[in-house]
């Protein structure tokens, strides 16, 4: 039986990342769904970059960014006393970057599907913008929000390359399930690798079936 620590670490990482991305993703997706600004395609492209870039590219730049000698890494050290790279917080930061499109794109599609109609109707019934977002847009986008969260969660659990580059392989801190599988294979511990791999396979399959059954209309557009 393999050590189950990486499984719980992965679940923890995915939960925290999903929560953070929900907070960032809702306003960003709302802006993308409603703006007529010229920079919209640029922002959309930046958001979709993690879908097309090799994880090593993202991982490489994140490493540079999180290095204690870089501004962000230095700020983190002075704030917390620890380094951002090779820490759980660093993993969360990296995950939030590479899972961003999995949160933003389904949300944006859902908000666009609701459209201006219900929002305008709410405004004529004395509902402020924020009131209308909370009580009309979000409830009407409920399925899209759920889809976005599930996809973000599942994708965060499945990521390997970025995690390996940014987090390394530190038990209890950065050794998530995909790293653990890699480690087992390297050490020719196929039985353990099998258990973890099959678990991840079944988990991903069930999750995706759930998402597609839930709603066929909020699928990712780029991937």
């Amino acid at each position: 039986m393999p050590d189950l620590g990486p499984v719980f670490l992965s679940l923890h990482l995915a939960a925290v990342t999903t929560a953070i991305l929900l907070v960032i993703g809702v306003p960003l997706a709302y802006w993308l769904a409603t703006t007529q600004a010229r920079v919209k395609p640029v922002v959309e492209a930046v958001t979709a970059l993690p879908l097309v870039l090799p994880p090593t590219v993202i991982g490489f730049y994140l490493l540079i960014l999180m290095n204690p000698s870089a501004p962000l890494g230095a700020a983190w050290v002075s704030l917390t006393g620890g380094t951002l790279s090779f820490s759980f917080s660093g993993l969360v930061f990296a995950s939030a970057i590479y899972s961003l499109p999995f949160m933003v794109q389904p949300l944006q599609s859902a908000f666009e599907a609701v459209g201006r109609g219900p929002m305008e109707a709410a405004a004529t019934l004395r509902a402020s913008r924020l009131d209308a977002i909370r009580n009309v847009l979000l409830p009407q986008s409920a399925r899209g929000i759920l889809t976005a969260c599930v996809l973000t969660f599942a994708h965060t659990i499945g990521e390997f390359g970025v995690v390996l580059m940014v987090g390394g392989n530190i038990p209890e801190r950065t050794r998530v399930i995909s790293i653990a599988i890699y480690e087992h294979v390297e050490s020719v511990e196929y039985a353990e690798a099998h258990i973890l791999s099959a678990g991840l396979l079944v988990f991903s399959f069930v999750t995706l079936v759930g998402v597609y059954a839930l709603n066929r209309s909020y699928r990712l557009r780029v991937s």
Partner: peptide, 27 residues
Amino acid sequence: AHRRAVSYVFQDARLFNHLDVQGNLDF
């Protein structure tokens, strides 16, 4: 719009479809 004391009945009614009729009225 939300601070103008004017209500608007749209051509397509635009009821809130996540609510029942009572919910629409209460809104």
